[in-house]
Every structure is written in C-alpha cells, then in structure tokens.
C-alpha cells in the first residue's frame, strides 16, 4: 500500500513537470489525450468482470468497461483528428 502512495506522489510530480511544458496551442489535444489515458480505468473494469461471487459486480464491470472504452477510443481518435490539423504547414 505504501508503495502505491510513493508511486502516486512521484507520478503527480512528474505530471506537473511534463504538463508545464505543453504550450497553450496544444491544451485542447492535451485534455482529450489525457482523457483517453484516464480510460486506463478499463483495466480495473476488466478485473471487475471476472466471474465471482455476485452478478452485480459483473454488471458494474460491464458498464465500466463500456464507459472506459468510450474514453479510450473516443479520446485517442479525436486527439489524433485534432493533431492532424496542426500538422506540418500546408500548401495554403
């Protein structure tokens, strides 16, 4: 458990350092991209659809998987769509 607290604190500091470097131009893609990353809850959600004691946890897991996958798929795709527009200077 204490290991997790260490990891949490260090990752937060790393996050502060990394995000401070992102220029305002990229703030919207940063948000949608980090949304996609927060879809990592899908890992917890998949663990919840393991067959266990109750059907209720499987049900929660099912909705959680669906929610998290919207985040993952929607987040990464829309971020890519945005960043494509920022791409190398076009002919115009």
């Amino acid at each position: 458990m204490f290991g997790l607290i260490y990891v949490f604190v260090l990752a937060t500091i790393l996050g502060f350092v990394l995000i401070t470097k992102v220029p305002p131009t990229l703030h919207t893609p940063l948000m949608s991209g980090s949304n996609a990353i927060s879809g990592i809850t899908v890992v917890g959600a998949i663990l919840a659809v393991q067959i266990g004691e109750t059907w209720l946890s499987t049900f929660f897991g099912f909705i959680a998987v669906a929610f998290a996958m919207v985040n993952v798929v929607g987040g990464f795709l829309v971020t890519d769509r945005m960043l494509k527009m920022f791409g190398p200077k076009k002919k115009a």
Partner: peptide, 9 residues
C-alpha cells in the same frame, strides 16, 4: 500512475 498524471495535468 495514469490517474496521477491526468490529475496533475
């Protein structure tokens, strides 16, 4: 880790 990164962002 992922949650912390997004939270910090």
């Amino acid at each position: 880790v992922s949650g912390a990164l997004v939270g910090a962002s």
